[in-house]
Nucleic acid binder design. Structure first.
Lengths: 347, 347
DNA sequence: CTGAAAGCGCTTACAG
DNA sequence: CTGAAAGCGCTTACAG
């Protein structure tokens, strides 16, 4: 006895079975007008009975749409990227698009290969989540007329393509300002790679806050990291070993803050009693750290959603009201900062 | 002056320009034999000159292949999932497939909708990364003849579909055994949700090790978590508040181990001096924790690779040598465990 | 309200 | 070695 093989039907087979044309079946399938109620019902019935599903490729070929959005990033590492992806997925869920994810792993050959593949019209649009400057990619995309929006924080004067980010500079300023308001005067900062705009923006905000407070910037307090936990750890040791260590550390992002925590624990330095720590991003686990991390929140999920909505609008041929959007950062005060206790407050 | 518009050419336009048939162009494009060297060169030239790229949809329609693999998971949360995705991506990079990612967020409606979409022949195959039992999904996939492999750890006797996982039970056993060998007698365990096979397997391994050592299992030492940092934190407090607290904690996974660390730090209990901690998974950050976490390694990347290779083989019509693969777990000894110091070793 | 027919851009027997 | 032609499964003017 053979197992029943649920053969996949084509539209014309459905049409034949009902006794109508494929034109009519197509109309029913796509909920277009111009079909009698009776006919519609009969067709509907047969479709359901056979669990008929349209062939994606044929539809795609005819309509020139793939139902696919591509997201490109360097590396999937959690935190920042995942926050944004959540927003993207959520929005895509409503639009019905699928999300293709591609990680370049900083391999330019692979990247170019992938880019080439997109040109075969197999994507409706792309989301660029690349922390470094990728003029060439953006340009190729523009040239190929593939809709895209770049997510990140290129505080460059003007780009000729749509971008979305958040007010990084202000975030850096706010973080530093907050620590100053608590009475800290020696504030260490662990930045991201300084060739990135997003790192420099944080640092610039830090500098600005100090200068406004009339406090000279001590280069010894500025450490460069790569936004990874390990850098937070290592640079904290460096900061602690300074002749005059800081009383607070601005960790650059929450991953590095985790590293800072661990270094401090190991050195038996209590947070926030002996050292204040402030992060950046407000990643999912930030609130669960011990103590809960005070941090500068980037509205990651919102950024993801917004980016996707912008892209979707672009894809459907609309023009964007504003092509360079910045959502605002904000400070989330939890329990990792307090006034310095080892020094007397300035009079 | 108009901007040059790089119009996308079709194959027949290329053919016309060279003065050959599309048949011949297609052969060149697909590197098939049966084309004169001269002709081939001329065609090649024109192709490159125009940066011609095949239309994906047309190709797909003809060949019935999409070049797309779907990965389904509950939630993108980092650690475990990311490890596996790395492996998947790496393998896919070679095969040239793109990866479509879908997160169900435990929403069954959404899940079914998505599943339905796959039936439109828009995927070459799917990777199921769902921690709970998903008989229906697997069955639908089987019925629709969509190739797939389930990643995870269903230690069920026999499934009628391809699976890949790792030796979880043995991992649980090994972790416990190791702590016993160090002299620990009261070992706390924080499991995952106990309705999951993967959680029960760890616990069963734990029990087995204790029983073999002739140590009665104390139910008070068994805490249920959900594999999230917060559970590690909370349950550690519970364990510490026991009349007779453990001297070691088996954290269930590395995320929970992070929570354990934090609770211990907050209670001022040193690792490993005052408490040993062992994790499970060996996630990217495990080695960077302070102190570096001793853990049971699941070969996440390898699992991802293997799963993908199995799927690829399935897609190309081959049959699998073995359909239920388990890679082996192993212990990675770092610095979070040592003999208990508050008790005397048994004589 | 309904359908015949063209066409989306490829690939693939098949014939020459 | 080369090409004419059919066909993958849809959608969409267009005519009736």
């Amino acid at each position: 006895m053979e197992l029943e093989q649920p053969k996949r039907l084509t539209m014309s087979e459905i049409a034949r079975e009902v006794g109508v044309s494929t034109t009519t079946v197509s109309k029913v399938l796509n909920q277009l007008p111009g079909v009698g109620a009776q006919t519609r019902a009969r067709i509907q019935h047969v479709i359901e009975q056979h669990e008929y599903v349209q062939n994606h490729a044929a539809r795609h070929l005819r309509k020139g749409q793939t139902g696919l959005i591509d997201l490109v990033l360097m590396r999937l590492e959690g935190g920042y990227d995942l926050g944004i992806m959540h927003g993207v997925q959520e929005t895509l869920m409503e639009s019905g698009h699928r999300l293709a994810v591609f990680a370049t792993h900083e391999n330019e050959v692979v990247e170019r290969l992938w880019l080439r593949r997109l040109f075969d019209q197999s994507t409706d649009g792309v989301l660029l989540l690349l922390p470094y400057e990728h003029g060439e990619i953006a340009n190729s995309l523009v040239q190929q007329k593939i809709p895209f929006v770049a997510i990140g924080d290129r505080n460059e004067p003007a780009t000729n393509f749509p971008t979305i980010g958040s007010t990084i500079w202000l975030g850096g300023y706010t973080a530093t300002e907050y620590l100053l308001s608590l009475g800290h005067r020696r504030i260490g900062i662990i930045t991201g790679p300084l060739h990135l705009m997003t790192s420099r923006a944080r640092l610039a905000g830090y500098r600005e806050a100090l200068e406004r407070a009339g406090i000279p910037v001590d280069p010894a307090l500025i450490c460069e990291g790569t936004y990874l936990l390990g850098d937070g750890f290592k640079q904290t040791y460096a900061l602690l070993d300074l002749p005059e260590p800081p009383t607070a550390i601005f960790a650059g992002n929450d991953a590095q803050a985790t590293g800072v925590y661990q270094a401090l624990y190991q050195r038996n330095i209590r947070i926030p009693d002996d050292m204040s720590v402030i992060g950046f991003d407000d990643v999912t686990y930030s609130a669960q750290m011990a103590p809960p991390l005070t941090t500068i929140r980037q509205p990651l999920v919102e950024i993801g959603k917004m980016a996707t909505n912008m892209l979707l609008r672009l894809i459907s041929g609309h023009t964007l009201e504003s092509t360079n959007v910045e959502l605002s950062t904000s400070i989330v005060i939890r329990q990792s900062c307090q006034p310095p206790r080892t020094r007397t407050l300035p009079t």
